[in-house]
């Protein structure tokens, strides 16, 4: 009994000590992940901001010192930057519209219980999303869109038409098409998950009330998809802003600057022109653009977390 009492006081003290360091334990658990992200994301971001105000060119070692806003001014004055900015917006907006239209259509289709083997069909339709972007680019720029040997050229010839050199004649629409092929499955899968969450009896009730298929969809199903659609728009915006691999292997940003988006522009500034200062200034614009979307996205996620807690 005596030893027990002594042991318990020791334990008590340990526990109280432990209580004081509860925060310490939490930090030990969560700290490594936070520190890791801090070191790999925020520190480099701060460095990017720093570089964006510096004269810094890898092939001009004597060109140093503070640049003030010169890098920003130069970037803004660079017609290539402006076209990259516009290209980015075009690529994002056009791909958004197409992936959501197709994704919604596919989702409704595969949500129909009368479709035989719909799970397998859905899986096949979702496949483009799992293809590495580099391979996606290769498939389309070579096997599909090559003006001489591509499948589409053969199809055009079969129809008695002159084959089109898609990537040369319509570079941006072609790129949008490639991105749409790759990302429609994402919109489809998200919307499909939300669609299957629409209660069957709700639809049946609408049917009993005399609503046809279209009216049921328009008034019962579509309103339920409001939030998921909103989320898909923002998520895809974030992902489309950073598209790189597909451009790298298809058009290399060309012809000219026709398909150079912000990431590709920054890549060229850094690794072709070796202009670290300008690349950093351009990167800051990309970050700002992403943040505009991210703010809305984070707010939405926050309200979802709050609802669940």
């Amino acid at each position: 009994m005596a030893t027990r009492a002594i042991r318990s006081t020791v334990k008590t003290r340990q526990r109280q000590l432990g209580k004081a360091s509860q925060g310490m334990i939490s930090f030990l658990l969560i700290g490594p992940a936070v520190v890791y992200l801090f070191v790999w994301m925020l520190v480099p971001l701060a460095m990017t901001i720093y570089y964006s105000f510096r004269n810094y060119n890898l092939i001009r070692p004597t060109f140093t010192g503070w640049a003030g806003i010169a890098n920003y001014a130069n970037v803004l004055a660079d017609p290539d930057f402006l076209s990259a900015f516009i290209n980015t917006l075009v690529l994002v907006v056009a791909s958004l519209i197409l992936t959501i239209l197709f994704g919604l259509f596919f989702a409704v289709l595969y949500n129909n219980e009368h479709v035989f083997g719909r799970n397998i069909l859905r899986t096949f339709a979702a496949s483009p999303f799992f293809i590495m972007p580099v391979v996606t680019g290769l498939i389309w720029s070579n096997l599909m869109m090559n003006p001489s040997f591509g499948l589409l050229a053969a199809l055009w010839r079969g129809l008695g038409l002159v084959p089109i050199d898609f990537l040369a004649q319509f570079p941006m629409p072609s790129l949008v098409g490639i991105v749409t092929w790759q990302w429609t499955p994402f919109a489809m899968l998200v919307l499909l998950a939300s669609l299957s969450g629409v209660p069957e009896d709700l639809k049946e009730a609408a049917g009993l009330d005399g609503a046809g298929a279209w009216k049921t969809f328009r008034h019962i199903v579509l309103p339920q998809l409001g939030r998921p659609l909103y989320a898909v728009v923002m998520l895809e915006s974030i992902f489309f802003l950073v598209i790189f691999g597909q451009i790298y292997v298809t058009t290399s940003g060309g012809p000219g600057t026709a398909t150079t988006n912000l990431p590709y522009y920054i890549y060229l500034q850094a690794f072709s022109a070796y202009n670290i200062g300008a690349a950093s200034a351009g990167a800051i614009f990309a970050v700002i653009l992403a943040n505009i979307v991210a703010i809305f996205l984070v707010r939405m996620i926050y309200s979802n977390i709050q609802e669940e807690a």
Binding site: S8, K11, R15, Q16
Partner: peptide, 11 residues
């Protein structure tokens, strides 16, 4: 008879 303030559940 033992005050359990601050004693962990397992103890």
């Amino acid at each position: 008879g033992r005050d359990v303030t601050g004693v962990a559940p397992k103890d």
